[in-house]
Design a protein around this nucleic acid. Structure first.
Lengths: 110, 110
DNA sequence: CAGTATCCCAATCGATACTG
DNA sequence: CAGTATCGATTGGGATACTG
């Protein structure tokens, strides 16, 4: 992947743009969650995508991964302080998205 | 494509998430542009993608397409009033994206 | 001028099976 | 419990050629 991002909007889309990334984010806003919690909270996500998205978000510094070296293993995911700076952006996107969805329902023709 | 959008963030990503869509949007914020203007302003976009993205944005109601039935044809694209409601959202995304890009440059390690 | 049409490659995502 | 590995289907995007 080329890491010249002319447009910073693409950066946000890159960070948030994965099928389950927004959902993961919302779930971690409330509180820290274990891997298995996220699996239950997001029933339709495959293990592959959940793991991949968690790794991506971790790499971007948005979430933190904490491993407890116990048997069986315990891994917790939480929003980092930095990740919380993304929340207002996500909320603004969410607000526009909601209005847009309503609008599209009202005018199927145009 | 399934049009159930559980998360409205995905809606925004769907509207703005195409390789050249943000760029197209920025170019239309200033003023109305002709198809050929956009081709010149965005040299790396292929005709296929430019046309496709313009159609997408038009379908979402973000831009307006005006055809002048002259020979040769003249087609103008402009941001709709509705499309302008998306600009503040895009700007907020842009601001976060810029900071994020700076951050990533500063800490290549972690 | 403003597009279409076609072919092809790369990335994304899902399903399934397996493991420290 | 928390993953990894592999395969295959779908989608996004680029290159080229052609048209009302």
């Amino acid at each position: 992947m080329i890491h010249q991002r002319e447009c910073p909007i693409e950066t946000v889309i890159h960070v948030l743009g994965g099928k389950w990334k927004p959902t993961i984010l919302w779930n971690l806003v409330e509180s820290t969650k274990r891997y298995s919690d996220l699996e239950k909270l997001i029933p339709d996500v495959s293990q592959k995508m959940l793991t991949q998205h968690l790794r991506d978000l971790e790499h971007e510094g948005v979430i933190q991964r904490t491993v407890y070296p116990t048997v069986p293993p315990k891994v917790e995911y939480s929003l980092s302080e930095y990740g919380r700076t993304l929340v207002p952006v996500a909320e603004m996107m969410c607000a526009w998205g909601e209005k847009h969805n309503e609008r599209k329902q009202k005018e199927p023709a145009s």
